[in-house]
Amino acid sequence: MNDAQTITVEVIGVEQVTPLIKHFKLAPAAGGSLPVFSGGSHIIVVMQGAGRVHKNPYSLLGSPLALDTYEIGVRRMEESRGGSHFMHDAVEVGSRLEIAHPVNLFGLDKIARKHVLIAGGIGITPFLAQLEDLHGGSVPYELHYSVRSSEHAAFLQRLQRREGERLHVYYDSEGQTIAFETLLATQPLGTHVYVCGPVGMIKHVIATAQSCGWPDSHIHWEQFSAPPVGDAFEVFLARSKLSVHVPPDQSLLESIEAAGVEVPYLCRGGVCGFCHTRVLELDGELVHNDHFLSEADKAKAKSIMPCVSRANCKRLVLDL
């Protein structure tokens, strides 16, 4: 993917849905309709901030059948390196943004006999579009949605109106928690579980499902890590013969792109594996923040996912 393939959209609606989450409606600036997508897809939003470009992934939460607009929900991140703050502070009705075509890394299993969806906070967004697909179908499903408190429950009315009994909401403020063990130990054969939310929740769901005997092929999760900040370091791109400085608050991928070198990507969140890059030389250690490489591959330090990972070193040479 590269920026030549982006679509210019205009913001036609902004709504503050919780103290931390804003809901944006985007329409194609050129008119007409937007590309088709399936529930669980995300887009990359390209933001021209002051002095730097942000590219963040956001799940599409509108109906896959309504292609005149895309809807996204953006949570203001405490330690945002700028992307979510830019969306919250600088984007308003009439603003123009560039977006990349939708990609789905979190689709529903097509022959599942039942779906169990588990969302924590802003993790509700990919499920909103999936529910559009599930609603009215013959495959049973249920949604378990955990939120901090009622004022933080984004899109709750939309869900309550449509999902009725299939929706289970849990308020942290009331001490309510999802009984994962009971939930996962009692599902009929052929069920798939999907989880999106904070890292801790995802890890817990995966571990509980596995201990209940679930095979990996029935466990699905999505988590976009924001690239963490770190120490500055230098990287040398062997094929481009370029030396690039990576500042503390910019990701390796962003720094490489700013130097004019293209790296393929889909998620920019350490999930898809597209940005996989070979490490040719290293005199320190890699700081892997992705969910793609296996622990063994991380330990080998022969490859890196530059969208979220960094290095603690004097010299890093990449095959780019």
Partner: peptide
Amino acid sequence: LQKSLMGTR
């Protein structure tokens, strides 16, 4: 199978 639960091999 109709009555089996996830976790079955």
